[in-house]
Each structure stands twice: as structure tokens, then as C-alpha cells.
Amino acid sequence: MAVVARGLRLVLGRRVVLDGVDVAVADGAVTALVGANGAGKSTLLRLLAGIDAPDGGDVTLDDAPLRQFEPAARARQIAFLPQQAQPQWPICGRDVVSLGRLPHGAGFDRESPADTLAIDRAMTRTGTAAFAQRRIDRLSAGERARLLLARALATEAKVLLADEPTAALDPGYQLDAMTALRDEAGRGVAVAVALHDLALAARFCDRLVLMAAGRVVTAGTPAEVLQVDALRAAYGVAFELVAFGDLRLPVPVSRTARPGGGAPP
């Protein structure tokens, strides 16, 4: 197990964002975090990435407590792709990707052969090689999202955490992005990804962690987790399971309750 979290608790003001969360992200597999908005998926990813510290519990990377890592050493081991990465300057595509090599000591003007190789690889895998010299502000939202994924891949860390990497993408690129994550897992990387699309989660992920209100509801294989009752409890939505090859994919049908308890109008 690459990244293991035990008993995570995080409080923001009076709100308990995470409470008693146990999660493991395994090497060579894709783990999906699913759940309604506000369930705590993004917060959990930030704690797993080590960029926030929990109020209780701890996160270990290969059995070493994450908080003992230097920021740069941690960033070499764990690549994190935040949901909102707003480019502030119109830098070019290749520069965006090369930022992924920063934890390895690379800079825009200082690149080792290994850095160059990693950057080129990441751009090929995400199909972004054509954007290398284009300014990021002149790319479409989907093109930009793929570049940012390439940035995370370029780190070539042993752990890859991605928050909603498919959010801005059309179906074709969604498949490409999930395939790219799957391929990373195939190389032995421990991948965790927060997803809204349960069909994508069922098809591309080895394990699912279903979250609701800052707690883990169930965790296991897609078939174990994607049960109508558990999903209704977590999302407040009635689902139907539809056969797709060997899989049974959940399709949302109607709202049963608002998160927070209110009945549907």
C-alpha cells in the first residue's frame, strides 16, 4: 500500500469536513473517490497529497508519516492535480508541463535529459505535444485540462492524485484521460481520482471509495460499492443499474432527498 490514511479528521471553523476516514491507495491500481458535492473528496485528496495537514489521524507514504517529508521530497513522490488550476500568465504549453519537473530540481531554464524525456513522454501520453509552443490562454478548456494532466504525469511520481480530471472534457477526451490514468496504474503508480461520473469510475477503476458528509460509506470493488441503497444514501438520488457488458452501471433516475435532509419539492 503506497498511501494509507487512518482516522483522518479535519475541522474548518465549526464544520467537520472529514471525520474518521480510513483510505488506502494501492500501487498499480486506480482508486476512485466518489460521492456528492461537499462529501469531502477534494479535501481528502489534499490531505493524501500532504498539502494540508489533518486535525486528527495520519497519512503515511510507504509506512513513513507524510508530515515528516520535506515539501520537495513529498512532491517528488506524490503528484497532485488540483481541480482548479487557474493559469495566471499565458505561458506556453511545454512550460506548463515542465512545471511538473520542479520537484526534481528542474526550472524553466534548467532541464536535465531525464526532465526532457519525462516532459515529452507526458505530452505524448496526453496527446498535447501539438500545444507545446501555444500560449495556454489560447487553448480551449479541454486542451488546457489535458495539459494540466500532462503536468502531473511529468513528475513521474509513484503516487498520482487527480481531482476531477475529466470535468471539462468531452466524452472522447474523458476516455483518453481515464486511459492515461489507467496506463499510469499499469506502470505500478498508485492512482487515486475524485470522480463525479460513476460510469467512468465503474469502467476504469479497480476500487471505489463512496463518501458522504465527510465519512466513508463503503469501499471495495465497483460491483460491491455501486449498490442502489448505498448510492441513494450517499447522493440522495435513486439510481438504476443498467447492464453494460459484464458491468452494471448506475444511471441516476430521480432525486429522493437533498443532501442535508430536505425532501424533494
Partner: peptide, 11 residues
């Protein structure tokens, strides 16, 4: 240049 969260992720 990609925001504070990415900077944190980059160490």
C-alpha cells in the same frame, strides 16, 4: 503561475 494549490503540490 498555475495557482497556489498547484504550487503546494509541486512542493
Amino acid at each position: 503561475s498555475l495557482g497556489e494549490e498547484t504550487a503546494l503540490a509541486l512542493g
